[in-house]
Each structure stands twice: as C-alpha cells, then as structure tokens.
C-alpha cells in the first residue's frame, strides 16, 4: 500500500507542470459546478420566499375605491365572498385606498416619487393569497372585466423575470462547468497516458516480476484521484472567497437586500464542498480507469 502511494507521488512530481494544469482545470470546472449548485439552491429559496409573499391583486374600480373603506358595498362583498369560496384561494385581504397609500408612503419613504402620488392614484384592492401560487392565472382570467374590477394582476408574473434571470445564470454556469469538465477529463486522460508512457520501463518490469493490476495501475488512479480531490478543495476555497468578498456585499447591499436571500457558509462548506470532492474524485477515477483500459496495455 505504501509502495503504491509512493509511486503515485513520484508520478505527480515527475509531471509537475502537467499536474498543476490538471489541478487548475479541475478546480475551475468544479468551481463552476459548485456555483451552479449554489445558484439552484438560492433560486429555490428565493422562490419559497416570494411565493409566500406574492398574491393576486384584484384592483377595484374608481367608485368602489373612493367610497368603500371596508369592503362593505354589495359589489365588493360579493367579489370577496366568491374569491373566498374558491378552492384555489387561501385567503383574501381587503386593502382600502387609504391603507394602500399608507403602505406606499412607508415603502418609498424619503423618495421623490412620494410627491407625485396622491391617494386618488391608488385603487383599493382585494389581495388574494393563493393556495397554489402557480395557478394565479386562473383567477386573473376569471375576474378580469368583472363589474367593479379595474384590473387583476398576478404578482408572480412580475417576479417571473427575476426567476428567469436567476435560471439563466444557473444554466450558464452549468454550461461552462460542462465545457470545463470536458477539458479537465481530457487533460486527466492525457496526463495519465503521459505518466504511463514515462513509466513504461518500470511498468514492464513490474509486470514481468508478477505485479498484479493493483500494483501497476493503482498508482495512476491515485494520481488522478489526488488531482480531483485537490481540485475540489481549491474550488471550494474559491467559492468561499467568492462568497466572502463578493456575494456577501452584493446580497446585503441596497440593491439586492431582501430580494435574494444570502448564501450561508454552511451552504458552501456543508453542502457544495463535499459534493465537489465526491464529484471530483469520481470523475477522476472514472477517467483514469477508462484511460488505462483503452490506452495502456496492462
């Protein structure tokens, strides 16, 4: 066992530049994969966050908005009752014109837009929380154009843009990760061939004195696995650095705070890191094994 490790280390040192290239490529590839995994995680969490907040807004027309502070008019009461009876709907809250204006003042406190907006510009709304946030469109279809209704807005459609943006970030990272992984696989395969070639005398002698496949091939596999694991560790370190120096600032800054939930250290070290180590080791082993099978006479 000791012998096998020693041979592997000699091999890694002998092709030092190749080993470094292999480690770096593997690290970049795994880093992108890790970024993709973190993106998926964040998207899931963002969706959870938003789906608990978003609603379908049924805005009432001007007469109702102006004259009904508590949804007591027959028109409003009937709409509300119908919504509450719908199995797709979890709950319905009425927000009067005054309440809407108060909320508006709170959200945009200190900003110039406040001067432009009067209570009259805001409609009273029935805020419908959906039992299934994905089926808000059905409520929109059913209540649009009804008497007393100005318009119906599914807020999900508004945040859909954000999700599609996050989704394309994720897809792009995965795409890059796959291209890089291909490069890493080819490089590992190449290095093993080179390594086997430089050691062909040794391997020939090993075979003649009756060394089993274990002794002749495992050193090469260990080389590959060490590369994969070191690459994964570097990738994880890179993700930690990216989180601490870049994402933490970005996500807690004015623009994105409360828009995208922050990425925790446990996400990186407790989830993505181990995944990368396993993926790195498995891909490297598989590549090594296939290479030895295809190109190196045993």
């Amino acid at each position: 066992m000791l012998f096998v490790w020693r041979e592997a280390l000699v091999g890694l040192r002998r092709n030092l530049t190749m080993t470094l290239a292999m480690v770096i490529t593997t690290a970049i590839s795994l880093g992108l994969l890790g970024a993709g995994l973190l993106a998926v995680r964040t998207i899931d969490r963002t969706e959870d966050l938003y789906y608990s907040l978003i609603a379908v807004q049924v805005a009432l027309d001007e007469p109702t908005s102006a004259e009904d502070p508590d949804c007591s008019s027959p028109l409003c009461r009937d709409l509300r009752a119908e919504l509450e009876a719908d199995p797709l709907v979890a709950s319905v809250d009425y927000e009067s014109r005054e309440a809407a204006f108060a909320r508006f003042q709170r959200i945009y406190a200190g900003q110039s837009i406040l001067q432009l907006v009067r209570p009259q510009s805001l409609p009273a709304t029935l805020r419908v929380t959906m039992a299934d946030p994905l089926r808000g469109g059905e409520i929109v279809d059913r209540f649009t154009g009804r008497p007393g209704v100005r318009n119906v807005v599914d807020q999900r459609a508004t945040v859909a843009d954000l999700f599609s943006f996050l989704g394309s970030v994720r897809n792009a990272t995965f795409g890059l990760a796959i291209v890089q992984a291909l490069a890493a696989v080819l490089l590992i395969s190449n290095t093993i061939q080179l390594s086997a070639f430089t050691r062909r005398t040794e391997v020939g002698i090993m075979r003649l004195v009756g060394a089993t496949r274990w002794y002749t091939q495992v050193p090469f596999l260990i080389e590959a696995v060490v590369t994969g694991v070191v690459g994964a560790v570097l990738a994880t370190a890179g993700l930690v650095a990216g989180k601490v120096f870049f994402l933490d600032n970005l996500l807690s800054g004015r623009l994105l705070a409360n828009t995208i939930p922050p990425i925790g250290m446990t996400d990186v070290l407790g989830y993505v890191g181990p995944v990368l180590v396993v993926v790195g080791a498995v891909i490297a082993t598989a590549t090594g094994y296939v290479t030895l099978r295809l190109y190196v006479r045993s």
């Binding site: 012998f3 002698i205 090993m206 004195v209 009756g210 060394a211 089993t212 002749t216």
Partner: peptide, 8 residues
C-alpha cells in the same frame, strides 16, 4: 527489492 514490493 522492487520485485518483492510489487508482489506485496
């Protein structure tokens, strides 16, 4: 020694 090492 190599001949003995590789056969364990």
């Amino acid at each position: 020694a190599f001949a003995l090492e590789v056969i364990g």
